[in-house]
Design a protein around this nucleic acid. Structure first.
Lengths: 235, 235
DNA sequence: CAAACCAATCTGGTTAACCAATTTATTTAA
DNA sequence: TTAAATAAATTGGTTAACCAGATTGGTTTG
């Protein structure tokens, strides 16, 4: 297992090196938006890595909108100038896997907003799904079983009801990090699971009655423990 | 070019189908956390797709923390129960490329927060970088040149100064969508570029004097146009 | 002289063969 | 009978060959 992590880190390092080399190439050759990059094959020769590595690096830069690959034609610099290109690549290279505190902080920000938006925009179907998630959660807690999953689905149902697909996606992205890095601190502490039912119900009622301020307040109360962890910790 | 988009859509459809088939398989076989999925080869036979397609789908589910691939061993269900697994896969399948309004709404949310956090946490180095981005922006505007890139880098410098790598990453993710989908509505309208200098300076000063409330307020003022577009539009 | 055509080449994308490590099955020794 | 040893099969990861479409340069034709 250690080896696997090592090789993954190695791979990441290779990819970062390739990305920085592509950046240097764009700068050195003064490539402008729309200009064509050298072919994957020639890049793999020049950088002395496999073509697969090159493809991965290009795909990553495509994800961030910096390059465009067109089949049977080439890879092109996107419609973004050299200045912004350099700034963004610098960020891409710098950003590592986020530390947990950063994840929690972002989750709180997102959920306060999704709760508010859900109160404003929720359809009847959304409300029904939230209610189902709430009931499933309460059932599990009352039975004394672990309810982490149902807790999670309740929050995701609210994210869906917010009608903002970007925030919903971001919730999905941070969820695994939240779960794996910090199972012991999960939002609804099992010791306080019964309190969690009440808090979830409060949020649900505020969304049901379409009271955005109350929904946000109740969500904030729900995150009180996490909030304190996040802001009182002097790390 | 049209074909290229078509094939990409086709590919996305294939991948979604594979993901839903993997979900069905996990449900049908009652696979629990830690259980092993069938090999990539057998899956590619069973689903009648290439092994490459299977690998892409698995990598996507790995990204969301639902599966773990271990070399020379197998692909395993992550430490997440069947209920949450189903809920998250449902979301993953549902979420399309976000519409622009959702991107803008999220950007405003993030930037109000990063401005506030930057005022609280910025180092002297952070401040220096923000100042450089501000000066570069002002120079371009005064010269009458397009300053979209410098505008962008100013905002990214603030995101970096926020000390929250998750929010910084999210800013990077939404940036290309913001730029490409909506160049005409970019934050600092070129007609109002000189106003933009003042607004940027206000934000910078608030961060410099470490006044979080003011920083947030100035950022909000800066986003006034976008804010109205986002919330007064009845789409 | 210019436009149309064509073949050779080059492109990103895809597939199939290969690799090393692991797991499983079989054999062997105590 | 059991446990250690070993060989065979299986795994995810990687590489190299292949593909169809796009590009390019030269040639031909009107």
């Amino acid at each position: 297992m250690k080896l696997e992590i090592l090789t993954k880190n190695e791979n990441q390092e290779i990819q970062k090196k390739i990305i920085s080399q592509i950046r240097d190439l764009i700068n050195y050759k003064n490539l402008e938006p729309g200009d064509k990059l050298p072919s994957e094959r020639s890049l793999s020769e020049k950088f002395e890595v496999s073509r697969g590595n090159i493809r991965e690096a290009i795909q990553k830069l495509e994800f961030y909108g910096l390059l465009n690959s067109i089949p049977q034609s080439g890879t092109f610099v996107a419609n973004i100038g050299v200045i912004a290109m350099n700034g963004m690549i610098e960020d891409i290279l710098r950003l590592e896997d986020p530390e947990f505190k950063s994840l929690v902080e972002t989750r709180i920000l997102l959920e306060l907003k999704t709760a508010r938006l859900a109160a404003l925009r929720r359809t009847d179907d959304d409300l029904k799904l939230i209610k189902e998630a709430l009931d499933a959660y309460a059932d599990k807690v009352i039975k004394g079983e672990d309810a982490v999953q149902e807790d999670l689905l309740f929050h995701l149902a609210i994210a869906k009801a917010s009608g903002n697909s970007t925030m919903n996606t971001f919730m999905l992205i941070i969820t695994p990090g939240i779960i794996t890095n910090f199972e012991k601190y999960h939002v609804c502490d099992s010791n306080q699971a019964f309190l969690g039912i009440q808090e979830h119900t409060d949020i649900y009622e505020a969304i049901k009655t379409q009271n955005p301020k109350l929904a946000k307040a109740k969500m904030k109360a729900h995150f009180k423990m996490l909030y304190q962890y996040c802001y009182n910790q002097k790390d």
